[in-house]
Amino acid sequence: MWLFYLDSLQDALPFFLKGLWITIQVAGLSLVMGTGAGFLLGILRSARIRALNLLLAAYVDLIRGTPFLVQIFIVFFILPEWGIHLEAFASAVLSLTIYGTAYICEIVYGAIRGIPRGQIEAAAASGLRWWQQMRYVVVPQALRPILPPLVGQYVLLIKDTAVVSVIGLTDVTRVGWLTVQRIPNGILVFGLVGLLYFLICYPLVYLSNRLEARLKVEESTL
């Protein structure tokens, strides 16, 4: 029986790879955009502009305080009510970007706050404008503490892409659902789905751990 399932699973493999490709596209696009927006908002948050800060804090709390599943439903089902029609793929990328941006914003903001005040004062005293202080002095130093949690966040976001299957996007998780109806061996089918996620995520988990370890060594030698 298992042999038979394995055989049909092999036939279904192109279908899985197609799903994997969707997962990779959704994850890749939203990670790139979320990183850009997260850095921008994280840097803006450290500008200490009261109104902007309240707004960004509210955004971050709102996103972190609600399930991603609900967020993606809002984007997919409620935006059309307001006349904004997005395809499943665009909805998935948009909601994941909004979601990822909030977490990345906090990582960046936290790291920037950890940079000693004297660094910013030295940069300001030499005549650099605020964005130049950020660009040349603060952010380069913040990258070290940012990278390990950022890569860790990437792993979480990639795994969270599984949720996009609920709006009908045929990502690798949905391929699993569709396949298990033809090949009724859940362990085998979702074992394969899990393996595919693991193959993408593990290198990042490994990288994150290595970065973390390197940071610890550097801190202890300082």
């Binding site: 000693p116 004297g118 660094q119 004062e121 030295a122 940069a123 300001a124 005293a125 030499s126 005549g127 404008r129 002095v137 130093q141």
Partner: peptide, 18 residues
């Protein structure tokens, strides 16, 4: 910006960019 280009500042803790 103009003010600070005309005035150099040296801190107790150096504050060099590491």
């Amino acid at each position: 910006i103009r003010l600070r280009t005309e005035v150099g500042f040296v801190f107790q803790q150096f504050n060099l960019y590491p």
